[in-house]
């Protein structure tokens, strides 16, 4: 069992064993984040390239810090200031980075499947940091890590995922990862924002959020992805908020000790009210901290071995 030199493209393809390996390593590495000197020399001399074709705060910073804390050198690429503007293709850009000695590419792209494409083009490992509406595997791993922090187990937990499931790669990765580890998942959203045949992924689908939240241990609120919506799939943000926004009343259907999660960035007052986002039940900032530890573990396992 080893992730050395391999790509990390999706949780659909990742084995439960490999997921658990990453999670247990992240558990050990998290301690480094609370040290006065947040650096270990493990990945000295390795170069990690962040290839981001879509905006990102958390994921990009989190990979960059994870690389730095492990003593790898991160380099970043921003679409706006690159030769992409002159028409260079993705494959050519990536091959050039590889030719310059980059050891691993972390990519976010607006096209589903682009990371799988890149992995075929490159010899070096590729980590998917979000590809279109497909998957965001490292986000789901950090979410699972955070749930384990609070609930100490995944098997048998009831997780409700609420909102724009159709456009959400975070939801898809979490559904694959959490079901593999034995959680029961229910999803709820406007019928226009629920993928047809979603129940084939082994989840229960509802159009009333209260039904999905009933008895939940975890309430996972998805961001309303306004930028991915070409046609009007719901009447107004206000109406969405009334029916699907997570507020105190809707949360009262969950278990008393249920935690509230959100992948960020939040549209406060739309999919989640500010009082819930800032309440003690919200673990949204813990997710962000866990993200750095989980990405350190991923870099360690992929880069930290013999070629």
């Amino acid at each position: 069992m080893s992730l050395r030199g391999k790509d990390l493209l999706s949780l659909r393809e990742m084995s439960q064993e490999d997921m658990e390996l990453v999670l247990s390593t992240a558990r050990s590495l998290k301690e480094i984040l609370s040290r006065p000197i947040k650096k270990v020399p493990t990945l000295r001399g390795k170069v990690v390239c962040n290839l981001f074709y879509e905006p990102s705060t958390r994921t990009k910073m989190s990979f960059e810090l994870a690389a730095r804390y492990m003593s790898a050198d991160p380099v970043s690429f921003a679409k706006e200031t690159s030769a992409m503007k002159k028409g260079e293709t993705l494959a050519d850009t990536a091959r050039n980075l590889e030719a310059m000695g980059v050891d691993l590419v972390v990519m976010r792209h607006n096209v589903s499947g682009s990371c799988h494409f890149l992995a075929k083009v490159l010899d070096i490992p590729v980590v998917n940091a979000g590809d279109g509406m497909n998957e965001h595997p490292t986000q789901a791993l950090l979410d699972i890590f955070t749930i384990l922090d609070y609930k100490s187990r995944i098997r048998g937990l009831k997780v409700a995922i609420i909102g724009d499931v159709l456009h959400s790669r975070v939801a898809r990765s979490n559904i694959f990862g959490l079901t593999k580890m034995g959680a029961e998942i229910s999803v709820a959203g406007p019928s226009t924002l629920l993928p047809p045949e979603i129940e084939k992924l082994g989840v229960k689908a509802y159009t009333r959020p209260e039904e999905a939240i009933e008895g939940a241990d975890v309430v996972y609120v998805l961001r309303l992805q306004l930028e991915r919506q070409s046609k009007s799939l719901f009447p107004s943000q206000r109406e969405y908020s009334n029916f699907f926004g997570i507020n105190r009343h809707k949360l009262s259907y969950a278990k008393e000790d249920a935690i509230v999660m959100h992948p960020g960035p939040m549209n406060r007052g739309v999919e989640i009210t500010t009082d819930i986002a800032d309440s003690p039940r919200s673990v949204i900032l813990d997710q962000v901290t866990s993200g750095v530890a989980v990405r350190m573990a991923i870099l360690y396992h992929i880069l930290g071995g013999r070629d």
């Binding site: 050395r4 050990s28 590495l29 270990v40 493990t42 360690y300 930290g304 071995g305 013999r306 070629d307």
Partner: peptide
């Protein structure tokens, strides 16, 4: 995390906690 032979060893060592 401080070993100098991480890239020489065939098996990836398990990271314990400090």
């Amino acid at each position: 995390l401080y070993r100098d032979d991480l890239t020489l060893r065939f098996e990836q060592p398990h990271v314990g906690s400090t």
